[in-house]
Write a protein that binds this DNA or RNA. Sequence first.
DNA 1: ATGAAATGGTACCGGATCAGTCCTATATCA
DNA 2: TGATATAGGACTGATCCGGTACCATTTCAT
Lengths: 153, 153
Amino acid sequence: MIRMSKETDYGIILLAHFAGDQERLTHSARALAAETYLPLPMVSKILKILAREGFLVSYRGVKGGYSLARSPERVPIAEIITAMEGPVAMTECVEAPGECRHEPVCQLRSKWQKINEVVLLALGSITLSDLIGPLPDQLAPFGGKPENLVRLQ
Amino acid sequence: MIRMSKETDYGIILLAHFAGDQERLTHSARALAAETYLPLPMVSKILKILAREGFLVSYRGVKGGYSLARSPERVPIAEIITAMEGPVAMTECVEAPGECRHEPVCQLRSKWQKINEVVLLALGSITLSDLIGPLPDQLAPFGGKPENLVRLQ
DNA sequence: ATGAAATGGTACCGGATCAGTCCTATATCA
DNA sequence: TGATATAGGACTGATCCGGTACCATTTCAT
C-alpha cells in the first residue's frame, strides 16, 4: 500500500509536536507520550532515533529532554522518512543497483529512478512547518498543471 | 522504505512486456515467465490478478493466454499500483478515516491527504507507454520548478 | 471422445519484517 | 545519594509477504 512504517508515522507526529510548541525549551519522552497519546516505550525509542539522526538535540539527566535541532521550515519530511526507514525506493533495483538478478534484461530500472525522483521531489518540498498550519488546507500541486507533471524519455 | 510489493513490481514488469511486444495476439504465462525470468507460479498468480482487475483480457484453453485490455498510453501506473496493493496511502488515517484512535487529537490527517494527492498525481501522470521508450530518459518534473511544487495551507 | 495445454481460484507455508516492550548503563540535578 | 532523564540494546509475538501447490474448468487438435 505504499505506506510508511508506524515508527516513521509516529516520528513525524512527534516532530510536528515539537514544531507546534516551541515555547518550552525541551520536551521529555514522558510528556510527549502523554500529549500525543502514543505509548511511552515507543516514543522513547523513536526519540532516540531522531536524536541520533540529527533532528533532535538531547539533554540527559533530571530536567533533560529533547529539542528541535533545526527550525521546522528547514526539515523536509522526505529527509525524516529517509532517516527513519532508509532511502525512498519504489523498487529494489533503485535502492541497490546490481542486486536485482533481472537487471540485465529488465529495461525499467532507469524509469523507476526517474519516477522515484519525482516522488522524492514532491516529499522534499514539504517541511515540518507545513504540517502545523491551521485548516483548511489548499493544495496547488505543480501549479495546477498535471499534464506538465512528468516527462519520461 | 516506501516500497511496492514484489507482486506489484512484477505486475508492472509483465504489463510493460505486453506493451513492448504487441505483435503477438496473446502471451501465455509460461512464455512470459521465460521471457522475463520470473518464476512461473508467480507470473501465473499475478496475471490472474491483472485480468480480474481489468488490465488484461484472458483467453482459456490451449492457445489461450492474455492480452492488454487497453492501449498502453491509457494505463497510468498509479492505477496498477492501486489495483494490486490497495489505495496509495502514506499513513493509515488516509486510507481508513476514523480508524486511527489518535485522529481526534492528531492535526496531521488533512496534511497527509494533500501529500498523498501529490504522490498520486505524480504516479498518475506516468503510463505504461512511458515505460517502454528507449534510453536515455530525461526527466522534467513540474516544469523544472520544484519551488512551485506543493503549497499546503 | 480424449488428452494436452491453458486459465481460474484458493489454500498453504516458511521466513522476514514490524510494533511494541523490557532491561541495563549513564548522565544530571536537587 | 536518590530521582529522573536519555543511550543502547535485546527480545518477542503477530502480521504480512513471496512463493508454491493443488484442483477445477475451458479450449483446441487428433
